[in-house]
Amino acid sequence: MIRLENVTKTYQAGSIAVPVLKGISAEVEEGEYVSIMGPSGSGKSTLMNLLGCLDRPTTGEYDLNGRAVSGMEEKDLAALRNRWIGFVFQQFHLLPRMSARRNVELPLIYAGLSKKEREQRAEEALVKVGLQDRKNHLPAELSGGQQQRVSIARALVNRPRLLLADEPTGALDTASGDRVLDLFDGLHREGRTVIVITHDPEVAQRAQRQIEIRDGEMIKDSGRDIEKEGVR
């Protein structure tokens, strides 16, 4: 489903080029549950942005479901994000002035669904995360764990193939974090591809496959053998 081939990302800081990813190659099959671990500054967030089609690699190839993301137009990237990918962020990133249900509806607005359809699907997604009775609450009226579950409902509502989570438990207490991770387990069992980025080994252990990156290079992949320089 995901194929990265010698992907690099270099940022320009003034006149200095800062290489953040130095040639990552990996494959993720459909239905896998993968964690990407690494200390801050290791490039894991940049990798997540690339995987989430928020950004394009400087060099190298990224194929998502057989489509080359590297050469895509902005508009096609937006469509990919909308239909294929669901994001879960550490800071939840809910729109504060909208109710839980309307937050969950957002991806469907961009997908062009009718109001009726949107409401129905949003409620289904909220049922799935166990928050159907909180649908009319504003984010500020919900606990951190509840907000994160709303954001998971939002990530799922357009039935994406890939769920990308960036430190999903980073802002939560242990109990709420466990509940979120339980949800991920369930989604994985349903056959969704889940990629969790974290620096917390306990969170990483919940995945079937652990990838570790450091200084922009993959140093460990429990699923595959990696040679030095991160090239298979």
């Binding site: 989430g52 508009k75 937006a78 994001f87 357009n158």
Partner: peptide, 11 residues
């Protein structure tokens, strides 16, 4: 957030 959820620049 809107862009990450699939909003295009035009939208």
């Amino acid at each position: 957030i809107r862009m990450s959820l699939g909003a295009t620049r035009g939208q």
